[in-house]
Design a protein around this nucleic acid. Structure first.
Lengths: 330, 330
DNA sequence: AGGAAAATTGCAACCGGTTGCAAAAAAATT
DNA sequence: AATTTTTTTGCAACCGGTTGCAATTTTCCT
């Protein structure tokens, strides 16, 4: 930097200012500095800038579900959106270890400007910990609460559960089952609640309620055995497409035809749901919107940390493929 | 830091030294400092440290294939392995824009300690650009060359192509086709070369050679129409599982049974290859080994940048499921 | 042209650590 | 006990930028 300043015949401040937007520099000075900078191949060091400004342009993404294809979209969008805005993503892989303390410390040491906690399988206290530590945080896919003290971007899981019941009712199903994701996830609980409640209202019998151990094909497959073990069910609402596909294969392996003998309704609408071999009817969660909104929000918070906690919910919709029978005329 | 020093009754150097391992501090001083630090909730700022040491403990991961499930493993392992070693991952999403200049600048500004370029769809010059810029770089999934001047970790694509031909020959296939990934990818070219060469040697006829536009189900599906358009083929070697699954569904839609009417051999062994609906026989690329090795190598380079370029290749193996007919006695 | 207002510039302090060097203290040796 | 060797410690400079403030220059008015 000093060299650039000398070559351009100006002070270091001038150099700094040409590379800081919004700073006051005359056109002539800027030109001189830019020429000198180019000649010397100079770029300001973001590290040094961070130290001085106390801003790093780094946003942490905390996730614990690295094996679900749904997260491909998350990673893709998160990185490209941040990039577009001049920020950078710092990934934190939470698999296994979920004590907030350690990670709060970590992200604090790296002085990230903000954090997106993208998970529905962790207690809300996890995201809150960042808040308490003074780090702007968005809880994406999180549980929203009226007395929120943290930004939440996601969907109304309870309503989605209702939607599933509604979908079943429209197609004339009478006895149905729930095959949720991990039971401890708030999203699972909320969806289950909505599903059961609305099923009752619509006169559906929820014959069975099971939960897969995690969001995997294998877990879905195994849990499906439990569903099939007992009274017959006409349709199953799954907590995740991956789980659903495992369940479908378990059903097929048991000789059942889809949707003739048993129907399936998934959740998320991952790419594979559209594949011929599954043609899964599923509730689509607008992941793109959710991530874009989260990024926008976290960047907004960096600029104005005092912004009061906001809840942003996006609508889900049923994507009709072939794993449920068609809507009955009634 | 100053406060901690005062509270502990020592100099700032002493504080710095207690938090730098390998530094010379007496047990008494360390204790005093640690007590004071705890009382004040102090942690050294990594930013400031980076500025002083010129080391950031940040490793860049440059990728351009965020939609392939194979990359879930990459992200998972990359982040968790780095984490384990006290480094942090900085993701760079290359989708679309592939001019090296910009990204070299970017990573230089962030002063990453090293970069892993994980892609086979970019020219080797891309990875080299980092090298020239003085940034330690590993080209993962890259093309290896005898006169390498950059570290490469991956597989022997040409040999894998041969392996595919071998696999077809063992099962008595006579006329086969190649349905590769994007034609410009070095991995595609190498696999094609190996496949064609060994096919000839073994007396197989390569009836058709096509390339999918990108690594997606849809592209595979479309490209398969081209393969089926013309002389009959008994088996298809696909450049990627995703492409292969699309191709399989196109074949099924055309009324062909797998493996009775047509056989498929995939590449990568992604999770979905094991799903009942596809039961794909595929060549497994040991992604875990490749990533772990890349991480180890890049961290090694940070410690000793002069390390001379190394090529690390891992063996692939055929995972036999149900999309090819069984090995003939012969 | 002269003066006021606005824009630009440089100075110097600061962000929060690290580290070479020399002095001081502790340990080892004779 | 005196001397030498080793270990610990603090000083002060440095990493590479930013920024409040006052001085200077430019622009605008009358």
């Amino acid at each position: 930097m000093k060299e650039v300043a000398e070559l351009a015949g100006v002070s270091r401040s001038a150099v700094s200012r040409t590379f800081t937007d919004g700073a006051s520099v005359s056109a002539r000075t800027r030109e001189k500095v830019e020429k000198a900078a180019k000649a010397l191949g100079y770029r300001p060091s973001l590290i040094a800038r961070s130290l001085a400004t106390n801003r790093t342009k780094l946003i942490g993404l905390v996730a614990n579900n690295f094996q679900n294809p749904a997260f491909l979209d998350v990673f893709d969008l998160f990185t490209s959106e941040l990039q577009k805005r001049g920020f950078r993503p710092l990934l934190v892989n939470l698999s296994g270890d979920t004590s907030p303390k350690k990670f709060v410390e970590l992200l604090k040491q790296y002085s990230v400007d903000g954090v997106i906690v993208a998970t529905s399988t962790l207690p809300t206290s996890f995201a809150n910990a960042f808040q308490t530590a003074g780090i702007p945080v968005i809880h994406t896919f999180g549980k929203f609460q009226a007395n929120a003290n943290v930004h939440v971007v996601g969907i109304d899981n309870e309503f989605c559960g209702s939607m599933a019941a509604q979908t079943f009712a429209e197609r004339g199903y009478k006895s149905v089952a729930l095959l949720g994701g991990p039971e401890t996830a708030t999203s699972t609980q909320d969806r289950a609640a909505g599903f059961v409640k609305t099923s009752e209202q619509l006169g559906l019998r929820v014959v069975k309620t099971c939960f897969a151990e995690n969001y995997t094909y294998q877990a879905g497959r195994e849990a499906m055995h439990e569903v099939m073990d007992g009274e017959d069910v006409e349709a199953v609402f799954c907590g995740d497409d991956l789980i659903c596909m495992g369940a479908m294969d378990a059903a097929r392996a048991a000789g059942k035809a889809i949707p003739e003998d048993i129907g399936f309704l998934g959740f998320n609408d991952i790419a594979m749901a559209g594949w011929d071999a599954y043609a899964l009817t599923t509730i689509r969660q607008p992941i793109r919107d959710i991530i874009m909104s989260s990024v926008e929000l976290v960047v907004g918070m960096v600029e104005n940390p005092a912004r009061s906690p906001e809840i942003r919910l996006f609508p889900c919709s049923v994507i009709d493929r072939g794993s449920l029978r068609p809507i009955t005329g009634n």
